[in-house]
Design a protein around this nucleic acid. Structure first.
Lengths: 144, 144
DNA sequence: TTGATTGTAATTAATATAGTTACATGTAAC
DNA sequence: GTTACATGTAACTATATTAATTACAATCAA
């Protein structure tokens, strides 16, 4: 199964807040660009807020970045929006038979390997910042 | 969300078939070690068969490996059991607003990055064989 | 006080997982 | 050929997650 699009939407939101830094990024404004519902945006914004990536206040329209663009990585967003349980990208079957040689050793054998695979993926996300996304969009737009 | 345990079960099955190479690895036998249902094992074995990792025949008890241990990687198993749609570990929201600068560029900007992250993870899986798992279990068992 | 916005709970439809039952199909052995 | 047994599948269930949506209390600015 795929990792929830909450992650991609989170990246979209943060990037758009920056492009709109001189305007007001309300949940309705952001929802229009993502093409979804303001309530969904508020839910994701709430997660980004808890992770201290954005600042937003009840009753006051608009969200703002809480950090510099270059200090927010895709990994930060990925962790903020909870798309993958900590260290459990791969699920492993519970209760293999301890009476079987394989059953009693399989978990401790494969979990470290799966963890390395997961970390390799997350390392890539950690190497890309929202600033990189911002700049890439500026470049792509120039070519149009 | 996590990747289905079908993958871990597939690895378990293949490893156990090797340990039991002189015996008959029926779906019931394998199910007992995994601690699940024979029908579920047969479903997964069916996928491994389609990927030409095991040999199994209707009416004849037992599954056997179709390749050498060292020629089956975890990536082969991962692909065989269909736990992740091809090149779509990450799902991306559909139909972002083309009228918005970010909306019309976000997909083509992040998809290649997400793809690199996915490939980094899969590369790790491709570097580990069932033989490695087999040997690791032999070692772990010695220490008990 | 009014009007607009955020925060959050509740609901729905669609989809995937994991477990289970049931049975048709296929094979070997008697 | 009949019996016993195993595989291959379809169908069904319970559970969980996603994404979309509605509704409304709490909060703040004007």
């Amino acid at each position: 199964m795929s990792i929830s699009s909450r992650f991609a939407v989170g990246v979209h939101i943060l990037t758009l807040i920056e492009f709109n830094k001189d305007g007001v990024s309300s949940s309705e404004y952001l929802a229009e660009s993502v093409n979804t519902n303001p309530a969904l945006i508020r839910k994701i914004i709430g997660m980004l807020k808890k992770a201290e990536l954005v600042e937003v206040h009840p009753g006051i329209a608009g969200a703002n970045l809480a950090k510099k663009l270059s200090e927010i990585t895709l990994l930060d967003v990925y962790k903020a929006v909870n798309v993958v349980p900590e260290n459990e990208l791969f699920s492993v079957h519970e209760n293999p038979n301890p009476k079987c040689l394989v059953g009693r050793n399989i978990q401790e054998t494969i979990i470290p390997i799966l963890s390395i695979a997961q970390l390799a993926m997350e390392k890539v996300l950690g190497s890309v910042t929202i600033e990189d996304i911002f700049e890439a969009i500026v470049e792509k737009e120039k070519q149009k």
